[in-house]
Simulated assay, not measured.
Amino acid sequence: MPVSEPEPVTRGVLHRTENGVSWITLDRPEVMNAVTWDQRERIITLLADATADPDVRAVVITATGKGFCAGADLRGEHPGTSAIGDPAPGNSESANSAPGSPSAGGDPAPASSASPSAGGQEHVPANSAPGSPSAGGRERVPGDVARMIRLGAQRFISAVLDCEKPVIAAVNGTAAGIGAHLAFACDLVLAAESARFIEVFVRRGLVPDGGGAYLLPRLVGPQRAKELMFFGEALSAADAERMGLVNRVVAADELERTARAWAERLAHGPTRALALTKQLVNASLDVDRAAAFAAEASAVEIAMTTRDANEGVAGFVERRAPEYRGR
């Protein structure tokens, strides 16, 4: 399959398509890849594009530098505020911290960097009460913050969960707050030995957003989820693997190669069957047995109408490896 030409991209998000794999790379290492509003929107668009493009059959989300994603960067440019209630200027989580003070991921931030938030929330509690001004100058009213979360962090994580292609997270370093939830929302998680995962919200007196309280209990159970969220301690890659949050831990110099091997293997698989399987698994803990079985029966019937299903059966009968086309 061809490699796509480099395309104009939002600053801090690199993208290419290679061998049927859409590679989405966070590229602001100076702020541990904390995401701005426009970066978030770009990633949401790329995931939607991957769903719609039959030539894209798998996705990898990764990052450059020492951090995977340290949360949301409050100082990124935003075209408007009325829709999602973004913060007043200067309201980053560490706006009053000295240069070099700990960022959301607990690591020193460069003096010249923008400051990431405490996780994914684009507001500061002290200024989020009704009656305080929003960034657009109008008075903040009840519902603004909830709307901001729905259209921001939750929409971001939903874009990963709803993508109809398998999504792999290749976690190269610290994943904190919304960055950790971005990884946990992916279908498969690879982590470098140096990676860390931090439910950082409690350190700032905040409630986890971006689907954290939805994702974590489903991955590790409620007791483990509460331990991670109540204490906010950094979790090593090895411990995350033991708990079931990570599929495999590899050496840092093996991370991209392993992600490529996994993604290209998925890209050569029966794409529609994988999409239906993903939907079944993601919904399985939200429905009862009758609903799950009904959904399964429907998915099997749909899959059997695809060309790949016919090819799979033909390959079995003819005793050869099937050649799936994603159709």
Rank of each mutant, 00 (worst) to 15 (best):
A135G: 12
K278M: 07
F184E: 09
A290R: 12
K278Q: 03
A52T: 04
E193N: 09
T81E: 12
P130Q: 00
R203Y: 06
V167R: 00
T81I: 12
A283D: 10
E296Y: 15
M32G: 12
A153M: 12
T258N: 11
S194P: 10
C69H: 05
N96K: 13
R42E: 10
D209T: 11
G173N: 05
G90R: 05
F197R: 01
S115E: 14
N247L: 02
S112A: 15
A126C: 10
A238G: 11
D38Q: 13
M243E: 11
A314F: 01
R327I: 10
P130S: 08
G105M: 03
D53H: 08
L151W: 05
A109S: 14
I61H: 06
F231V: 13
T305S: 09
A238N: 13
R319P: 05
R203D: 10
R196P: 12
A252R: 13
V59D: 05
T62I: 00
A63Y: 02
D144Q: 06
P2I: 08
Q154E: 15
G173S: 07
S117I: 11
A50H: 03
E241V: 04
R325Q: 15
D288V: 06
T45A: 14
D38N: 13
G80T: 09
D107T: 14
V35I: 07
N33L: 06
R28H: 11
V246G: 08
A34V: 04
A95H: 10
G221M: 01
D38P: 11
V207F: 13
R204P: 14
A303G: 05
E301I: 15
